[in-house]
Design a protein around this nucleic acid. Structure first.
Lengths: 250, 250
DNA sequence: TTAATAGTGTCTATGAGACAGTATGCC
DNA sequence: GGCATACTGTCTCATAGACACTATTAA
């Protein structure tokens, strides 16, 4: 047998979209170190427990998100020496995407007060999150942003049935951009496997009733839903003047 | 202080392209468990050592890849209970992309014989790689494949200066596809920040001398180099017959 | 009716892929 | 010259984005 030399933990970046903003679940630490500080929910991996199971258990225990459909995936591992004053702790961070929670999250055993907060505010908060959780949060948000580009995972932020409009609001909240509703609609319904119509409609928005959709069965999107880029294509200067369009090389 | 409950290790998926094939570095295990089996190089993280440093050290120690430029990034963490019979081991796998090695890799301390092998052969080998290394290898290869799409990382497989042709051979080896040399050339040289001309040329291929390039400074490619898809766009049936091109919906 | 949201059509610019054709080296 | 590789031009189709327009409900 080997001599154990570190403690294995999981931390959770739990994201949702509520009131058109990207939100993250944080807890207030009830014990040292960083007692009283906000932190990402997490905890130690039990003997005989795999990482994803530990993350799922913590999600239930600490956040009271019992029955929700969640998307859960491993994010990255953080094990810098000194990141935890109690000793060598390797934290395997996980990313969870959940639909908007019905009410306030309920604190569990060691989570004094779980709470949804605006991601930007948490990132800029003073004092910052405990440990290296600010970095983990940033990595998680960036992962979520890029996953929305090439997977149908935005639906994980919605209820089981949703309208195209609701899906667009998810994209806008996560990316922090505005999208053209009409082009978005065409793109979503035109990408095979992205969404499936349920056949029923809803008029919860007012206006013409909208079709309801379920998440489709595609694992990746073809074509992808690319984020609008600041430089639409790195804006190569268009040849507008007279003369040959191609510059002489060499 | 906390009671350590696991052992922290790093494993390496070291990939290169040699003779137009994607190759992975494996070692033969000199100690139990899985003694005599092929495995990915790796080892335990030292006290006070961060993960990436451990991976870098193992890369040097175990594989004799001393002075090479390498790209090294964290891949994922594998910690299923029972994955190592010696006890609870969390392996933080890393992905390394290296230029074609000048000679045979030299085995280090506990690596009896490091060796480059065809990725497909290793994946299909019997007996399979030790531990869960087959799964790790697959995840690493898939990561490399998709990273080539949206980053200029293919250049990590090349010498410091390379031709467009050499870069294309990298893509073809990693993706296992053929690419049109002419379109590839236009795309690579037209994507800002992908490659930078050095000004000099080479005629190592025979034929007209080729420009030499260095890796550019872009972190991501705009536009991306997408893998050719089996279904170019999920092939919606093209309207070829007479009559209105758009089918009536509903 | 108006307001509001849902959804379609169409135009333009750009990129992907196919492939003809030109450039420049070595034999 | 012949051949091989490097590179450019051009055509076609698909997609992204802009935006006019139609559809269907509630008040």
């Amino acid at each position: 047998m080997l001599e154990p030399n570190c403690t294995l933990a999981v931390d959770l970046v739990v994201l949702t979209v509520a009131e058109d903003r990207l939100r993250v679940l944080t807890i207030r630490r009830g014990v040292a170190p960083y007692r009283g500080r906000r932190a990402l929910p997490g905890g130690f991996v039990l003997p005989g427990e795999d990482l994803l199971d530990a993350a799922e258990r913590e999600l239930r225990e600490e956040t009271g998100l019992g029955g929700l459909r969640v998307h859960l995936e491993q994010l990255a591992t953080y094990a810098a020496p000194g990141r935890d004053p109690r000793g060598r702790v390797a934290s395997v961070a996980h990313l969870a995407l959940v639909p908007p929670p019905p009410g306030r999250p309920t604190g569990g055993t060691d989570a004094a007060s779980a709470q949804w907060s605006d991601v930007a505010e948490v990132d800029a908060a003073s004092p910052p999150l405990a440990f290296d959780h600010r970095r983990i949060l940033r990595d998680g948000v960036e992962r979520a942003r890029s996953k929305l580009e090439y997977t149908p995972l935005a639906a994980a932020f919605c209820a089981a049935e949703f309208t195209v409009n609701e899906l667009r609001l998810v994209y806008e909240a996560v990316w922090g951009t505005k999208l053209d509703p009409r082009n978005f609609h065409r793109k979503v319904t035109g990408t095979p496997g992205f969404v499936e119509p349920t056949g029923s409609t809803t008029s919860r928005q007012g206006g013409r009733p909208a079709q309801l959709y379920r998440r489709g069965d595609a694992a990746v999107l073809h074509p992808a839903m690319l984020r609008p880029t600041a430089t639409p294509t790195a804006r190569r200067p268009r040849p507008t003047g007279p003369g040959p369009a191609t510059a002489i090389q060499r």
